[in-house]
Design a binder for these strands. Structure first.
Lengths: 222, 222
DNA sequence: GCAAAAGTGTAACATGTGTGACACTCTTAT
DNA sequence: ATAAGAGTGTCACACATGTTACACTTTTGC
Protein backbone atom coordinates (compact mmCIF):
# COMPACT_ATOMS: atom_id res chain seq x y z
CA UNK A 1 0.00 0.00 0.00
CA UNK A 2 2.67 2.47 0.95
CA UNK A 3 4.34 2.03 -2.37
CA UNK A 4 1.15 3.09 -4.07
CA UNK A 5 0.74 6.02 -1.71
CA UNK A 6 4.27 7.17 -2.44
CA UNK A 7 3.05 8.14 -5.90
CA UNK A 8 0.09 10.04 -4.50
CA UNK A 9 0.21 13.84 -4.79
CA UNK A 10 -0.46 13.96 -1.08
CA UNK A 11 2.70 12.11 -0.15
CA UNK A 12 5.16 13.45 -2.68
CA UNK A 13 8.61 13.69 -1.20
CA UNK A 14 8.06 11.15 1.56
CA UNK A 15 9.61 7.73 1.86
CA UNK A 16 7.39 4.66 2.19
CA UNK A 17 8.44 4.20 5.82
CA UNK A 18 7.51 7.76 6.64
CA UNK A 19 4.11 7.32 5.06
CA UNK A 20 3.72 4.06 6.90
CA UNK A 21 4.50 5.78 10.17
CA UNK A 22 2.10 8.65 9.54
CA UNK A 23 -0.79 6.48 8.46
CA UNK A 24 -0.37 4.02 11.26
CA UNK A 25 -0.40 6.83 13.76
CA UNK A 26 -3.74 8.12 12.56
CA UNK A 27 -6.82 5.99 12.69
CA UNK A 28 -7.80 4.87 9.23
CA UNK A 29 -9.66 2.19 7.35
CA UNK A 30 -9.32 0.31 4.13
CA UNK A 31 -12.61 0.04 2.31
CA UNK A 32 -13.24 -2.50 -0.39
CA UNK A 33 -15.67 -1.44 -3.06
CA UNK A 34 -17.19 -3.37 -5.90
CA UNK A 35 -18.10 -2.39 -9.40
CA UNK A 36 -21.18 -0.17 -9.75
CA UNK A 37 -21.32 0.47 -6.03
CA UNK A 38 -22.39 4.02 -5.23
CA UNK A 39 -20.01 5.40 -2.63
CA UNK A 40 -21.56 8.81 -2.13
CA UNK A 41 -24.40 10.89 -3.46
CA UNK A 42 -24.16 14.48 -4.56
CA UNK A 43 -25.07 16.74 -1.68
CA UNK A 44 -23.92 14.29 0.99
CA UNK A 45 -21.44 15.65 3.51
CA UNK A 46 -17.79 14.92 2.88
CA UNK A 47 -16.48 13.63 6.18
CA UNK A 48 -13.49 11.58 5.22
CA UNK A 49 -10.42 11.89 3.12
CA UNK A 50 -10.33 9.16 0.52
CA UNK A 51 -7.47 7.95 -1.58
CA UNK A 52 -8.06 5.36 -4.25
CA UNK A 53 -5.59 2.50 -3.87
CA UNK A 54 -6.90 0.14 -6.46
CA UNK A 55 -9.66 0.15 -9.05
CA UNK A 56 -11.41 3.10 -10.57
CA UNK A 57 -14.08 5.53 -9.46
CA UNK A 58 -16.11 8.01 -11.37
CA UNK A 59 -17.87 11.21 -10.47
CA UNK A 60 -21.06 11.68 -12.37
CA UNK A 61 -23.04 14.84 -12.23
CA UNK A 62 -26.72 14.16 -12.05
CA UNK A 63 -29.12 16.78 -13.26
CA UNK A 64 -32.54 17.40 -11.85
CA UNK A 65 -34.20 15.30 -14.50
CA UNK A 66 -32.21 12.30 -13.32
CA UNK A 67 -29.84 12.03 -16.25
CA UNK A 68 -26.18 11.67 -15.57
CA UNK A 69 -24.02 14.25 -17.22
CA UNK A 70 -20.33 14.79 -17.10
CA UNK A 71 -17.94 12.17 -15.96
CA UNK A 72 -14.64 12.50 -14.19
CA UNK A 73 -12.55 9.43 -13.55
CA UNK A 74 -10.47 8.96 -10.44
CA UNK A 75 -7.66 6.45 -10.50
CA UNK A 76 -5.03 5.39 -7.98
CA UNK A 77 -3.40 7.06 -6.24
CA UNK A 78 -5.60 10.12 -6.52
CA UNK A 79 -7.53 11.73 -3.72
CA UNK A 80 -11.28 11.93 -3.99
CA UNK A 81 -12.98 15.32 -3.68
CA UNK A 82 -9.87 16.93 -2.22
CA UNK A 83 -11.23 20.44 -2.52
CA UNK A 84 -14.48 19.47 -0.83
CA UNK A 85 -13.23 18.09 2.47
CA UNK A 86 -13.15 21.50 4.05
CA UNK A 87 -14.99 24.69 3.32
CA UNK A 88 -18.35 26.14 4.27
CA UNK A 89 -20.25 23.74 2.02
CA UNK A 90 -18.28 20.56 2.22
CA UNK A 91 -20.61 18.32 0.28
CA UNK A 92 -20.02 16.10 -2.71
CA UNK A 93 -20.56 18.00 -5.96
CA UNK A 94 -21.19 14.76 -7.83
CA UNK A 95 -22.32 11.20 -7.33
CA UNK A 96 -19.37 8.99 -6.59
CA UNK A 97 -19.54 5.45 -7.88
CA UNK A 98 -17.17 2.63 -8.63
CA UNK A 99 -16.59 1.49 -12.18
CA UNK A 100 -14.51 -1.48 -11.13
CA UNK A 101 -13.74 -3.47 -8.01
CA UNK A 102 -11.09 -1.93 -5.85
CA UNK A 103 -10.20 -0.47 -2.49
CA UNK A 104 -9.54 2.87 -0.92
CA UNK A 105 -7.86 4.34 2.11
CA UNK A 106 -10.19 6.30 4.35
CA UNK A 107 -9.18 8.79 6.99
CA UNK A 108 -11.81 10.70 8.90
CA UNK A 109 -11.65 14.45 8.70
CA UNK A 110 -10.47 14.99 12.27
CA UNK A 111 -7.68 12.51 11.92
CA UNK A 112 -6.79 13.87 8.54
CA UNK A 113 -6.45 17.35 9.97
CA UNK A 114 -4.10 15.95 12.61
CA UNK A 115 -2.15 14.18 9.92
CA UNK A 116 -1.73 17.45 8.07
CA UNK A 117 -0.30 19.19 11.08
CA UNK A 118 1.90 16.23 11.90
CA UNK A 119 4.02 16.58 8.78
CA UNK A 120 4.73 19.83 7.04
CA UNK A 121 5.47 18.15 3.73
CA UNK A 122 2.07 16.48 3.68
CA UNK A 123 0.47 19.76 4.64
CA UNK A 124 2.27 21.50 1.85
CA UNK A 125 1.23 18.81 -0.61
CA UNK A 126 -2.39 19.03 0.38
CA UNK A 127 -2.36 22.80 0.12
CA UNK A 128 -0.87 22.39 -3.33
CA UNK A 129 -3.62 20.02 -4.36
CA UNK A 130 -6.46 22.21 -3.18
CA UNK A 131 -4.91 25.44 -4.41
CA UNK A 132 -4.18 23.78 -7.72
CA UNK A 133 -7.84 22.92 -8.08
CA UNK A 134 -8.84 26.48 -7.31
CA UNK A 135 -6.35 27.81 -9.82
CA UNK A 136 -7.49 25.41 -12.48
CA UNK A 137 -11.07 26.45 -11.96
CA UNK A 138 -10.10 30.10 -11.96
CA UNK A 139 -8.45 29.74 -15.36
CA UNK A 140 -11.44 27.84 -16.68
CA UNK A 141 -13.69 30.68 -15.67
CA UNK A 142 -11.51 33.20 -17.45
CA UNK A 143 -12.17 31.24 -20.60
CA UNK A 144 -15.84 30.83 -20.08
CA UNK A 145 -16.25 34.50 -19.33
CA UNK A 146 -15.26 35.59 -22.80
CA UNK A 147 -18.48 36.06 -24.66
CA UNK A 148 -17.70 35.94 -28.34
CA UNK A 149 -15.91 33.20 -30.21
CA UNK A 150 -13.48 35.78 -31.56
CA UNK A 151 -12.40 36.65 -28.04
CA UNK A 152 -11.99 33.02 -27.10
CA UNK A 153 -9.83 32.36 -30.13
CA UNK A 154 -7.73 35.44 -29.52
CA UNK A 155 -7.25 34.52 -25.89
CA UNK A 156 -6.35 30.97 -26.75
CA UNK A 157 -3.81 32.04 -29.35
CA UNK A 158 -2.21 34.69 -27.17
CA UNK A 159 -1.94 32.21 -24.32
CA UNK A 160 -0.11 29.76 -26.52
CA UNK A 161 2.05 32.31 -28.26
CA UNK A 162 5.64 32.14 -27.13
CA UNK A 163 7.21 35.56 -26.94
CA UNK A 164 9.28 36.52 -29.93
CA UNK A 165 7.49 34.00 -32.07
CA UNK A 166 4.61 34.60 -34.41
CA UNK A 167 3.70 31.04 -35.25
CA UNK A 168 1.70 28.78 -33.02
CA UNK A 169 1.83 25.03 -33.44
CA UNK A 170 -1.58 23.42 -33.36
CA UNK A 171 -1.69 19.98 -31.86
CA UNK A 172 -5.43 19.83 -31.97
CA UNK A 173 -8.09 19.64 -34.63
CA UNK A 174 -10.59 22.43 -35.07
CA UNK A 175 -13.16 19.99 -33.86
CA UNK A 176 -11.25 19.43 -30.65
CA UNK A 177 -10.64 23.11 -30.17
CA UNK A 178 -14.31 23.85 -30.69
CA UNK A 179 -15.14 21.37 -27.95
CA UNK A 180 -12.60 22.86 -25.62
CA UNK A 181 -13.89 26.36 -26.18
CA UNK A 182 -17.44 25.12 -25.79
CA UNK A 183 -18.67 26.28 -29.19
CA UNK A 184 -20.11 24.59 -32.26
CA UNK A 185 -17.59 23.44 -34.80
CA UNK A 186 -19.00 25.26 -37.84
CA UNK A 187 -19.24 28.44 -35.79
CA UNK A 188 -15.56 28.17 -34.97
CA UNK A 189 -14.67 27.63 -38.62
CA UNK A 190 -16.76 30.61 -39.63
CA UNK A 191 -15.12 32.87 -37.09
CA UNK A 192 -11.68 31.72 -38.16
CA UNK A 193 -12.57 32.61 -41.73
CA UNK A 194 -13.65 36.05 -40.61
CA UNK A 195 -10.44 36.59 -38.72
CA UNK A 196 -8.46 35.55 -41.75
CA UNK A 197 -10.45 37.92 -43.92
CA UNK A 198 -9.66 40.65 -41.42
CA UNK A 199 -5.97 39.88 -41.83
CA UNK A 200 -5.52 39.00 -38.19
CA UNK A 201 -4.31 35.46 -38.53
CA UNK A 202 -3.62 32.76 -41.05
CA UNK A 203 -4.85 29.34 -40.07
CA UNK A 204 -3.03 26.43 -41.65
CA UNK A 205 -3.58 22.77 -40.91
CA UNK A 206 -0.86 22.40 -38.36
CA UNK A 207 -0.04 25.89 -37.29
CA UNK A 208 -1.38 29.39 -37.00
CA UNK A 209 0.39 32.50 -38.24
CA UNK A 210 -0.16 35.66 -36.28
CA UNK A 211 -0.38 38.31 -38.98
CA UNK A 212 -1.44 41.32 -36.95
CA UNK A 213 -0.54 40.86 -33.31
CA UNK A 214 -1.63 44.32 -32.29
CA UNK A 215 -5.14 44.00 -33.68
CA UNK A 216 -5.42 40.52 -32.26
CA UNK A 217 -4.68 41.92 -28.84
CA UNK A 218 -7.19 44.69 -29.42
CA UNK A 219 -9.86 42.02 -29.89
CA UNK A 220 -9.64 41.43 -26.16
CA UNK A 221 -9.69 45.06 -25.19
CA UNK A 222 -13.24 45.74 -24.18
CA UNK B 1 -3.79 44.71 15.49
CA UNK B 2 -4.84 41.50 17.18
CA UNK B 3 -8.33 42.78 17.66
CA UNK B 4 -8.58 43.27 13.90
CA UNK B 5 -7.12 39.86 13.22
CA UNK B 6 -9.64 38.25 15.53
CA UNK B 7 -12.29 39.05 12.93
CA UNK B 8 -10.23 37.54 10.12
CA UNK B 9 -11.46 34.26 8.65
CA UNK B 10 -8.03 32.88 9.31
CA UNK B 11 -8.23 33.37 13.06
CA UNK B 12 -11.85 32.55 13.75
CA UNK B 13 -12.21 30.91 17.12
CA UNK B 14 -8.96 32.21 18.58
CA UNK B 15 -8.58 34.75 21.35
CA UNK B 16 -6.51 37.89 20.76
CA UNK B 17 -3.78 36.62 23.08
CA UNK B 18 -3.52 33.38 21.19
CA UNK B 19 -3.22 35.22 17.91
CA UNK B 20 -0.64 37.48 19.48
CA UNK B 21 1.34 34.47 20.59
CA UNK B 22 1.18 32.77 17.21
CA UNK B 23 2.13 35.83 15.20
CA UNK B 24 4.96 36.80 17.50
CA UNK B 25 6.38 33.33 17.21
CA UNK B 26 6.58 33.49 13.45
CA UNK B 27 8.64 36.08 11.70
CA UNK B 28 6.41 38.68 10.13
CA UNK B 29 6.34 42.25 8.95
CA UNK B 30 3.92 45.10 8.85
CA UNK B 31 3.94 46.86 5.54
CA UNK B 32 2.57 50.34 5.08
CA UNK B 33 1.15 51.07 1.67
CA UNK B 34 -0.08 54.26 0.16
CA UNK B 35 -2.91 54.99 -2.21
CA UNK B 36 -2.36 53.91 -5.83
CA UNK B 37 0.71 51.93 -4.93
CA UNK B 38 1.00 48.74 -6.97
CA UNK B 39 1.77 45.90 -4.60
CA UNK B 40 2.07 43.08 -7.09
CA UNK B 41 1.71 42.47 -10.78
CA UNK B 42 -0.27 39.66 -12.36
CA UNK B 43 2.04 36.72 -13.03
CA UNK B 44 4.41 37.57 -10.19
CA UNK B 45 5.07 34.76 -7.74
CA UNK B 46 3.06 34.77 -4.54
CA UNK B 47 5.60 34.28 -1.78
CA UNK B 48 3.92 35.72 1.25
CA UNK B 49 0.63 35.52 3.03
CA UNK B 50 -0.93 38.95 3.30
CA UNK B 51 -3.73 40.13 5.49
CA UNK B 52 -5.09 43.63 5.09
CA UNK B 53 -5.16 45.41 8.45
CA UNK B 54 -6.17 48.84 7.37
CA UNK B 55 -7.11 50.53 4.11
CA UNK B 56 -8.35 48.94 0.95
CA UNK B 57 -6.79 47.02 -1.92
CA UNK B 58 -8.10 46.06 -5.28
CA UNK B 59 -7.34 43.32 -7.72
CA UNK B 60 -7.59 44.38 -11.32
CA UNK B 61 -7.41 41.97 -14.18
CA UNK B 62 -5.35 43.26 -17.05
CA UNK B 63 -6.10 42.06 -20.55
CA UNK B 64 -3.71 41.69 -23.44
CA UNK B 65 -4.54 45.14 -24.74
CA UNK B 66 -3.43 46.66 -21.46
CA UNK B 67 -6.85 47.66 -20.22
CA UNK B 68 -7.87 46.81 -16.71
CA UNK B 69 -10.98 44.75 -16.45
CA UNK B 70 -12.71 43.36 -13.46
CA UNK B 71 -12.22 44.63 -10.02
CA UNK B 72 -12.32 42.86 -6.72
CA UNK B 73 -11.94 44.80 -3.52
CA UNK B 74 -10.15 43.48 -0.50
CA UNK B 75 -10.84 45.01 2.87
CA UNK B 76 -9.66 44.31 6.40
CA UNK B 77 -9.33 41.76 7.71
CA UNK B 78 -9.35 39.69 4.55
CA UNK B 79 -6.49 37.66 3.22
CA UNK B 80 -5.04 38.51 -0.15
CA UNK B 81 -4.87 35.82 -2.84
CA UNK B 82 -5.47 33.05 -0.32
CA UNK B 83 -5.96 30.38 -2.97
CA UNK B 84 -2.79 31.38 -4.77
CA UNK B 85 -0.20 31.02 -2.02
CA UNK B 86 0.25 27.35 -2.77
CA UNK B 87 -0.33 25.26 -5.86
CA UNK B 88 1.65 24.46 -8.99
CA UNK B 89 1.18 27.93 -10.42
CA UNK B 90 1.29 30.15 -7.41
CA UNK B 91 1.28 33.47 -9.19
CA UNK B 92 -0.99 36.47 -8.82
CA UNK B 93 -3.98 36.18 -11.15
CA UNK B 94 -4.47 39.94 -11.04
CA UNK B 95 -2.63 43.17 -10.45
CA UNK B 96 -2.79 44.12 -6.81
CA UNK B 97 -2.92 47.79 -6.00
CA UNK B 98 -3.93 50.02 -3.13
CA UNK B 99 -6.93 52.27 -3.41
CA UNK B 100 -6.26 53.98 -0.10
CA UNK B 101 -3.45 54.32 2.40
CA UNK B 102 -3.21 51.44 4.81
CA UNK B 103 -1.14 48.63 6.16
CA UNK B 104 -0.95 44.88 5.95
CA UNK B 105 0.49 41.97 7.85
CA UNK B 106 2.99 39.94 5.87
CA UNK B 107 4.15 36.44 6.64
CA UNK B 108 6.50 34.66 4.28
CA UNK B 109 5.31 31.37 2.88
CA UNK B 110 7.67 29.18 4.90
CA UNK B 111 6.74 30.84 8.12
CA UNK B 112 3.10 30.73 7.19
CA UNK B 113 3.29 27.01 6.61
CA UNK B 114 4.80 26.63 10.06
CA UNK B 115 2.07 28.78 11.51
CA UNK B 116 -0.51 26.50 9.97
CA UNK B 117 0.96 23.42 11.53
CA UNK B 118 1.39 25.18 14.86
CA UNK B 119 -2.32 25.58 15.46
CA UNK B 120 -4.94 23.20 14.18
CA UNK B 121 -7.68 25.79 14.36
CA UNK B 122 -5.76 28.15 12.10
CA UNK B 123 -5.01 25.27 9.76
CA UNK B 124 -8.67 24.36 9.67
CA UNK B 125 -9.61 27.97 9.00
CA UNK B 126 -7.18 28.30 6.16
CA UNK B 127 -8.34 25.05 4.60
CA UNK B 128 -11.86 26.36 4.87
CA UNK B 129 -10.89 29.56 3.10
CA UNK B 130 -9.12 27.87 0.22
CA UNK B 131 -11.66 25.09 -0.15
CA UNK B 132 -14.41 27.66 0.00
CA UNK B 133 -12.84 29.49 -2.92
CA UNK B 134 -12.60 26.29 -4.91
CA UNK B 135 -16.20 25.46 -4.16
CA UNK B 136 -17.35 28.91 -5.10
CA UNK B 137 -15.55 28.66 -8.40
CA UNK B 138 -16.88 25.18 -9.00
CA UNK B 139 -20.44 26.38 -8.55
CA UNK B 140 -19.77 29.34 -10.80
CA UNK B 141 -18.63 27.00 -13.56
CA UNK B 142 -21.71 24.85 -13.23
CA UNK B 143 -23.71 27.99 -13.85
CA UNK B 144 -21.67 29.18 -16.74
CA UNK B 145 -21.95 25.83 -18.42
CA UNK B 146 -25.69 26.10 -18.81
CA UNK B 147 -26.33 27.71 -22.14
CA UNK B 148 -29.74 29.30 -21.97
CA UNK B 149 -31.02 31.71 -19.38
CA UNK B 150 -33.99 29.43 -18.79
CA UNK B 151 -31.67 26.66 -17.73
CA UNK B 152 -29.72 28.95 -15.45
CA UNK B 153 -32.87 30.16 -13.73
CA UNK B 154 -34.22 26.63 -13.37
CA UNK B 155 -30.93 25.47 -11.91
CA UNK B 156 -30.77 28.37 -9.52
CA UNK B 157 -34.30 27.83 -8.29
CA UNK B 158 -33.96 24.09 -7.88
CA UNK B 159 -30.73 24.60 -5.97
CA UNK B 160 -32.42 26.93 -3.54
CA UNK B 161 -35.60 24.93 -3.22
CA UNK B 162 -35.87 23.22 0.11
CA UNK B 163 -37.49 19.82 -0.17
CA UNK B 164 -41.16 19.74 0.65
CA UNK B 165 -41.46 23.43 -0.01
CA UNK B 166 -42.61 25.13 -3.15
CA UNK B 167 -41.75 28.69 -2.31
CA UNK B 168 -38.27 30.13 -2.56
CA UNK B 169 -37.33 33.26 -0.65
CA UNK B 170 -35.42 35.74 -2.77
CA UNK B 171 -32.84 37.72 -0.91
CA UNK B 172 -31.48 39.26 -4.04
CA UNK B 173 -32.72 41.71 -6.63
CA UNK B 174 -33.20 40.66 -10.23
CA UNK B 175 -30.33 42.94 -11.03
CA UNK B 176 -28.07 41.10 -8.62
CA UNK B 177 -29.22 37.74 -9.87
CA UNK B 178 -28.62 38.77 -13.46
CA UNK B 179 -25.06 39.69 -12.53
CA UNK B 180 -24.51 36.44 -10.74
CA UNK B 181 -25.80 34.43 -13.66
CA UNK B 182 -23.74 36.50 -16.04
CA UNK B 183 -26.64 37.71 -18.17
CA UNK B 184 -28.13 41.07 -19.03
CA UNK B 185 -30.79 42.28 -16.67
CA UNK B 186 -33.56 42.85 -19.25
CA UNK B 187 -32.88 39.44 -20.73
CA UNK B 188 -33.39 37.88 -17.32
CA UNK B 189 -36.65 39.76 -16.84
CA UNK B 190 -37.84 38.69 -20.26
CA UNK B 191 -37.09 35.06 -19.60
CA UNK B 192 -38.84 35.21 -16.24
CA UNK B 193 -41.90 36.59 -18.00
CA UNK B 194 -41.80 33.73 -20.46
CA UNK B 195 -41.54 31.17 -17.69
CA UNK B 196 -44.46 32.77 -15.94
CA UNK B 197 -46.47 32.68 -19.17
CA UNK B 198 -45.61 28.98 -19.45
CA UNK B 199 -47.01 28.43 -15.96
CA UNK B 200 -43.73 27.18 -14.59
CA UNK B 201 -43.19 29.72 -11.85
CA UNK B 202 -44.65 32.83 -10.31
CA UNK B 203 -42.10 35.50 -9.52
CA UNK B 204 -43.07 37.93 -6.77
CA UNK B 205 -40.90 40.67 -5.33
CA UNK B 206 -39.59 38.70 -2.40
CA UNK B 207 -40.25 35.12 -3.27
CA UNK B 208 -40.78 32.72 -6.11
CA UNK B 209 -43.60 30.19 -6.33
CA UNK B 210 -42.85 26.94 -8.05
CA UNK B 211 -46.02 26.24 -9.99
CA UNK B 212 -44.96 23.25 -12.06
CA UNK B 213 -42.00 21.53 -10.48
CA UNK B 214 -41.96 18.68 -12.94
CA UNK B 215 -41.76 20.86 -16.02
CA UNK B 216 -39.19 23.05 -14.32
CA UNK B 217 -37.00 20.01 -13.82
CA UNK B 218 -37.56 18.99 -17.41
CA UNK B 219 -36.02 22.30 -18.48
CA UNK B 220 -32.71 20.89 -17.34
CA UNK B 221 -33.08 17.47 -18.88
CA UNK B 222 -30.91 17.54 -21.93
C1' DG C 1 -2.82 2.12 -53.04
C1' DC C 2 -7.50 2.31 -51.91
C1' DA C 3 -11.59 2.73 -49.35
C1' DA C 4 -13.50 4.44 -45.23
C1' DA C 5 -13.43 7.70 -41.74
C1' DA C 6 -12.51 11.98 -39.98
C1' DG C 7 -11.95 16.70 -40.55
C1' DT C 8 -12.83 21.15 -43.01
C1' DG C 9 -15.12 25.09 -45.61
C1' DT C 10 -19.31 27.15 -46.41
C1' DA C 11 -24.21 28.21 -46.84
C1' DA C 12 -29.24 29.33 -45.33
C1' DC C 13 -31.93 29.64 -41.57
C1' DA C 14 -33.77 29.87 -36.71
C1' DT C 15 -33.19 31.58 -32.34
C1' DG C 16 -31.56 33.36 -27.92
C1' DT C 17 -29.41 37.21 -25.98
C1' DG C 18 -27.56 41.92 -25.53
C1' DT C 19 -28.52 46.90 -26.15
C1' DG C 20 -30.80 51.03 -25.33
C1' DA C 21 -34.80 53.09 -24.22
C1' DC C 22 -38.77 54.30 -21.53
C1' DA C 23 -42.46 54.25 -18.11
C1' DC C 24 -43.57 52.54 -13.87
C1' DT C 25 -43.07 50.87 -8.95
C1' DC C 26 -40.83 50.20 -4.79
C1' DT C 27 -37.40 51.53 -1.30
C1' DT C 28 -34.57 54.74 1.16
C1' DA C 29 -33.01 58.80 3.29
C1' DT C 30 -33.82 63.25 4.78
C1' DA D 1 -44.23 63.13 3.74
C1' DT D 2 -41.64 63.66 -0.12
C1' DA D 3 -38.07 63.50 -3.31
C1' DA D 4 -34.40 60.81 -5.14
C1' DG D 5 -32.67 56.53 -6.22
C1' DA D 6 -32.87 51.80 -7.26
C1' DG D 7 -35.23 48.15 -9.20
C1' DT D 8 -38.63 46.23 -12.59
C1' DG D 9 -41.50 45.18 -16.89
C1' DT D 10 -41.37 45.61 -21.63
C1' DC D 11 -40.31 46.93 -26.39
C1' DA D 12 -37.78 47.11 -31.11
C1' DC D 13 -33.71 46.02 -33.05
C1' DA D 14 -29.13 44.07 -34.09
C1' DC D 15 -26.30 40.35 -34.06
C1' DA D 16 -23.59 36.26 -32.71
C1' DT D 17 -24.13 31.55 -32.45
C1' DG D 18 -26.24 26.97 -33.09
C1' DT D 19 -28.33 23.82 -36.44
C1' DT D 20 -28.45 21.21 -40.48
C1' DA D 21 -26.81 20.19 -44.69
C1' DC D 22 -23.57 19.15 -48.34
C1' DA D 23 -19.33 19.11 -50.99
C1' DC D 24 -14.62 18.70 -50.52
C1' DT D 25 -10.05 17.43 -48.48
C1' DT D 26 -7.06 15.00 -45.54
C1' DT D 27 -5.89 11.23 -42.69
C1' DT D 28 -6.20 6.49 -41.26
C1' DG D 29 -6.26 1.53 -41.57
C1' DC D 30 -5.93 -2.43 -44.16
Amino acid sequence: MFEILKASPLFIGLRAEEINFLINNSSHQIKQFSNKEVLAYAGERVEKAMIVLDGKLQGEMVDFAGNSLKIEEIEPPQMVAAAFLYGPQSVFPVNLSAISDGKMLIIFKNDFTKLLSADQRVLNNYLNIVSGKAQFLSRKITFLSFKTIKEKIAYYLLQNLKTGNQIIAMNQSQKGLAEMLGVARPSLARTISEMEADQLIKWERNHVDIVDLKSLRATLGR
